[in-house]
């Protein structure tokens, strides 16, 4: 295992990222800015799914379900009181409440993490592809519940006219926090327990790793960031509907993790950037040439090719050498 991280490079990357955000704010137009925001949200999603899926090997397709929970909680909390009264039937304490974005995001993330605990305790007893299927079931159940809980969610209509609070200065600090947290976890003893579980659950248990606790925690940590990403998403698009968080989205995030390399933070980061740029690039192309679906087809093709020819992804489980300090 690698030794502690190379702090100098991390600071350099952080400063460079900050400068890039500044430059982007000053130069490019609104449309490009929104794409850069989406890229950031996808980075959060891919890196956080990597904590669950890559580190611990829990193949979850439920990420958009946690996003949906975070997104709706955040949206309801930031929704202006006057509009709340118009559209929703909320309990009194909630109806009169309007929070700034940060506490709303934290609340959204925490709700998602809490759900992960509740769902994870029974479901995480399943392994491998059965877990994947069960988490997919979870995602669909979340969608159905949101669609039918009309007094809070307005059902299939969703909530629109949300304040457009999400900016680069919201998204990218969260990107930094997510990556930092993932990095800290990966190179801690907790992270090593996770990797041990992924490689050989039985052996991990034998050396005293608490299997179940580690699994539930890694699902919950992933879910927290997914919830935050959902909140950022809602306030970027300024609308949120049950259909926003679909199985296709789960698939896209999984593709990023698998292609980047399950377990590699840098891999997820890079793959998230590449794929979300490609998707956003194809969207106008699809619309103008009437070739809907091309982006997804390409994405799926790349996934299948990677699975056949390089099943460990681009980076494997590793991080680039220069980001990790020399082994002691």
């Amino acid at each position: 295992m690698a030794a502690p991280s190379n702090r100098a490079w991390h600071v350099v990357l952080l400063v460079a990222g900050g400068l890039l955000v500044l430059v982007a704010r000053a130069t490019v137009n609104e449309y490009i800015l929104s794409i850069i925001n989406f890229v950031g949200i996808y980075i959060i999603l891919a890196v956080s799914l990597n904590i669950t899926n890559g580190f611990t090997g829990l193949f979850s397709l439920g990420h958009p379900g946690f996003m949906a929970i975070g997104g709706y909680v955040t949206a309801v909390l930031t929704f202006p009181v006057t509009r709340k009264a118009m559209f929703l039937e909320l309990p009194r304490w909630l109806a009169g409440l309007q929070l700034p974005l940060l506490p709303a995001l934290l609340a959204g993330g925490l709700c998602a993490a809490l759900t992960a605990f509740v769902v994870g305790i029974p479901v995480l007893r399943l392994k491998g592809h059965y877990l994947a299927v069960a988490t997919m079931g979870f995602l669909i159940i979340v969608q159905v519940l949101i669609t039918n809980w009309e007094s809070v969610t307005r059902g299939p209509l969703g909530l629109n006219g949300l304040p457009a609070l999400t900016t680069l200065w919201w998204v990218y600090p969260w990107v930094a926090v997510t990556v930092y947290a993932a990095w800290k976890i990966k190179f801690s003893s907790f992270g090593r327990s996770m990797l041990a579980i992924r490689e050989d659950p039985l052996a991990a248990q034998c050396i005293g790793i608490h299997l179940f606790k580690t699994r539930v925690l890694s699902l919950a940590i992933g879910a927290f960031f997914a919830g935050v990403a959902g909140g950022l998403w809602a306030h970027l698009v300024t609308a949120i509907t049950p259909a926003s968080f679909s199985l296709v989205m789960a698939f896209n995030i999984v593709v990023m993790v698998v292609v980047g390399g399950t377990g590699s933070i840098s891999g997820s980061f890079v793959a998230a950037v590449i794929f979300s740029v490609i998707t956003e690039f194809f969207r106008p192309l699809e619309e103008s040439f009437d070739i809907y679906g091309i982006g997804e087809i390409l994405m799926a093709a790349v996934l299948i090719l990677i699975l056949i020819y390089r099943p460990t992804g681009i980076f494997g489980s590793r991080e680039p050498r220069f980001l990790v300090a020399k082994e002691s």
Partner: peptide, 14 residues
């Protein structure tokens, strides 16, 4: 399983 999801999405979009 993930590959089959890929095939599924590919066929839907085709």
């Amino acid at each position: 399983f993930i590959a089959s999801l890929g095939v599924s999405i590919m066929l839907q979009n085709l």
